[in-house]
Design a protein around this nucleic acid. Structure first.
Length: 762
DNA sequence: CTTAGGG
DNA sequence: CCCTAAG
């Protein structure tokens, strides 16, 4: 209840890799839906608005009890945990499809694909009746539970994976086949691209009271007039054809319902049509991805190899950050009165921005290690698998990397939904007002471009899902799966709340002037080749300090946004996404991808350097540091051309340099793995290749004149040591080999090395 | 996987 | 920092 009242968000799912479910990365793309109470809208809603996605929660407002019963416990212990027990989901309510008329109605309405025939779903989808899909979901869930139990819930993100269940999205109507089938969230998410049609400002100016100022101020409590028309969710032609779907916006003008039933057939139909469009290929996408990617040119073999070669980059390993030591283990046993707000206090949560590349490098990286960690794949097994060309694991990896390629126009699952059970508080009229976020912003621009022909100058944006910054969660091992889910839910909810605002980037440059028109900014139909980017940034106006253990519980006014941003709001650090700027979504778009903002990077670096204390060079990831998130290119057909995103540049700090120098002095050049292990074992973002490269640059720096040096000056003393060590080891190596060969006396070398060590270390 | 080296 | 050849 509390969750529902206070948070009131719905998430359709995380994007997660398809391999071992329980190892899915916590980094995810979240096509999110959200509904609000009251006539309040957060900056995040603007985000959603910009995305053009009216993300209405169509869930049936599950009774989210925050208590943990013995029954729950038993369910978990026996691995029979059911989704309906958790707060986070309603997906397995399908289980009651046959018995529970409400749910049956609900889901049936979602699933009716192209006909209003009430029996349609049962006719077309006997599986829904016989419970086969249910079993599927259930099995999956059990699998998760099993893994969680087996994995013993370590304090390592890598060993755990979270997923927000897809809820009613668990089924998909294939527009082509007219059949209903269960679908994994992967499929759904792969296909969640949005196609937006943003009308020019002039058209909407008269109808909105929102202006860019509100938006620019990141005011989370902006009220928007509801005007659905301003932003239309559009479908592509092919989809429209296949589905026979008319413009979806009109039937949805009044989605609020006080009844638990979604009675309106039109709405049902639309929901079904809009939600469950899945391309013909998505059914098999899991298995055929590699081949298809190759075939379709999304991923060349070379690119694939390149991806593979990155496994060794360790920055995927994330250090858990504990911002509180208080356990919430008691949360599961406490009885009814436990509020989310209370748990939030106890919740240990750090939010950290994750660098997410266009090809989801992190996911790519993490598969291997996470599999290892969680015991799904031994190193040896992995090697064995890798050696096989056709092993699906590779495909899967590819699959993740190129997930966008699968959304090349076949599907578009908009999150339009009803929120029947929530309408009792009567504030749901806000739902549509989200749409005005965009129009509101544009409205202020309208004055400047009244001459716009609204019809023809629409800019159609297609935004793949936004990525959600990485979350860090600490939870005691004794916590239950259910509480874990809730914790994750809260974390996600937090970060998706008004702790974020939206930034717009064009060709890599932040568009700061909110008053410019799209045309002035360069976002126009004539400028289709340019990549437009959206970014999620911490909302500066919502910088709330970290909750400390023992801190006073937060009391939230009912209906008000949650206090968010448990992370330091660093305006420069953004979570970026790009979207197509193209009237034809299929149009190849090789626009420039937005590099990570330099200012963002530098601020991160500053933070980083400050936090790396001492000369130990064991630079842990700063607890609260955030990383720039990468741009997600939405250019569907240029996948093969754009490579994985570059890692963020992280200049070596002096202490790191010193540690490096010291280690090289000790170990010599050419033993970078040892150097890494010795001095940078805890610096996950420093690979031995990085160290080698740094040594290279250090050497170069030492050789050039101080005037030519750039960047943060390295102490001359260190540079001297670099030179000395280098000259020594370069002399040492060849003569050593020679002497080895000549004298056949390896002990001599060893002793000489010892001498060297002593000499160098002084 | 590591190392070395070019980019 | 990326990429790749080579071992």
């Amino acid at each position: 209840m509390v969750l529902q009242k206070k948070l009131d968000y719905g998430f359709s799912g995380y994007q997660v890799p398809a391999i071992p479910r329980a190892t899915r990365s916590a980094r995810k793309r979240v096509p999110f839906r959200k509904r609000l109470e009251g006539n309040q809208i957060s900056a995040f809603d603007l985000l959603a608005t910009v995305a053009g996605k009216l993300l209405l929660d169509k869930e049936s407002a599950p009774a989210t009890n925050n208590t943990w019963s013995a029954e729950d416990q038993y369910a978990v212990e026996t691995n029979t945990v059911k989704e309906e027990r958790a707060d986070v989901n309603q997906s397995l309510k399908l289980e009651t499809l046959n018995q529970d008329s409400y749910n049956a109605e609900f889901f049936a309405s979602e699933l009716v694909p192209q006909t209003s025939d009430p029996n349609y779903s049962s006719k077309k989808s006997p599986s829904l009746r016989n419970g086969a899909p249910i079993a599927t979901s259930d099995c999956l869930e059990r699998f998760d539970a099993q893994k969680l139990m087996n994995g013993k819930i370590k304090n390592e993100m890598g060993g755990l994976a979270f997923n927000v269940e897809t809820g009613p999205y668990g089924y998909v109507c294939e527009t082509s086949g007219d059949c209903i089938r269960p679908v994994s969230e992967n499929e759904v998410l792969l296909d969640d691209a949005l196609v937006l049609d943003v009308k020019p400002p002039a058209l909407v100016s008269s109808d909105t009271s929102i202006n860019a100022r509100s938006y620019g101020d990141h005011n989370p409590l902006v009220s928007f007039p509801a005007k659905w028309d301003d932003v239309n969710v559009v479908t592509r032609d092919d989809e429209e054809k296949s589905s026979g779907c008319t413009h979806p916006s009109s039937p949805l003008r009044n989605p609020f319902r006080s009844s638990l039933h979604i009675g309106d057939r039109r709405i049902r139909k639309i929901l079904a049509l809009k939600y469950w469009k899945v391309g013909p290929r998505s059914k098999n996408v899991r298995y055929s991805n590699y081949d298809e990617n190759l075939k379709s040119g999304y991923l060349s073999r070379r690119a694939y190899k390149r991806l593979r070669s990155r496994r060794n980059y360790p920055f995927k390993k994330r250090k858990l950050f504990y911002c509180s030591s208080e356990s919430n283990s008691d949360g599961r046993t406490s009885s009814e009165g436990l509020h989310i707000g209370d748990r939030r206090i106890r919740k240990i949560l750090a939010l950290k921005y994750w660098k997410v590349g266009p090809r989801s490098k992190n996911v790519r990286y993490s598969n291997y290690d996470e599999n290892l960690k969680s015991g799904y794949l031994s190193r040896r097994a992995y090697k064995r698998l890798r050696s096989r060309r056709n092993y699906p694991f590779k495909k899967r990896k590819l699959f993740y990397c190129s997930s966008e390629s699968n959304s090349d126009g076949r599907t578009s699952s908009e999150g339009i939904s009803d929120s029947p059970a929530k309408s009792n508080n009567g504030n749901n009229s806000i739902l549509y007002s989200k749409m005005n976020g965009v129009t509101g912003e544009s409205s202020s621009l309208a004055d400047q471009h009244k001459s716009f022909n609204s019809r023809d100058s629409h800019v159609k944006l297609r935004i793949k899902s936004f990525r959600v910054p990485e979350l860090f969660i600490e939870i005691p091992e004794s916590a239950t799966v259910g509480s874990l889910k809730r914790t994750v839910m809260e974390a996600v909810t937090e970060i998706l709340g008004d702790g974020l605002c939206v930034g717009v980037l064009l060709q890599g440059k932040k568009v700061r002037d909110d008053n410019k028109t799209l045309l002035q900014t360069g976002i126009s139909c004539d400028n289709l080749m340019d990549a437009l980017g959206f970014s999620l940034e911490p909302n500066p106006s919502h910088t709330t300090p970290l909750l400390c253990p023992g801190g006073s519980p937060l009391k939230l006014p009912r209906g008000s946004p949650l206090p968010l941003a448990r992370y330091p709001a660093n305006p420069g650090l953004v979570n970026q996404v790009t979207c197509d700027l193209s009237p034809e979504p299929r149009m190849p778009n090789r626009g420039n991808f937005i590099e990570s903002n330099n200012d963002c990077a530098s601020s991160l670096i500053d933070m980083f350097d400050k936090s790396s204390t001492e000369s130990k060079a064991l630079v842990d990831v700063p607890a609260m540091s955030m990383e720039t998130l990468a741009v997600v290119p939405a250019h569907k057909k240029s996948k093969q051309s754009d490579v994985a995103q570059r890692r963020i540049r992280r200049p070596f700090s002096i202490s790191e340099v010193e540690a490096l120098v010291q280690a090289v002095e000790k170990l010599g050049t050419g033993r970078w793995r040892d150097v890494k292990l010795r001095a940078f074992d805890n610096a996950k973002h420093r690979t031995y290749v990085d160290l080698k490269d740094k040594w290279k640059t250090l050497l170069h720096t030492a050789r050039i004149s101080p005037q030519q040096r750039r960047g943060k000056p390295v102490p001359q003393e260190l540079l001297d040591r670099v030179l000395n060590a280098h000259t020594y080891w370069s002399q040492q190596q060849q003569p050593s080999l020679e002497s080895c060969l000549l004298s056949r006396n390896s002990t001599m070398i060893a002793s000489s090395r010892c001498d060297v060590d002593e000499k160098i270390l002084g």
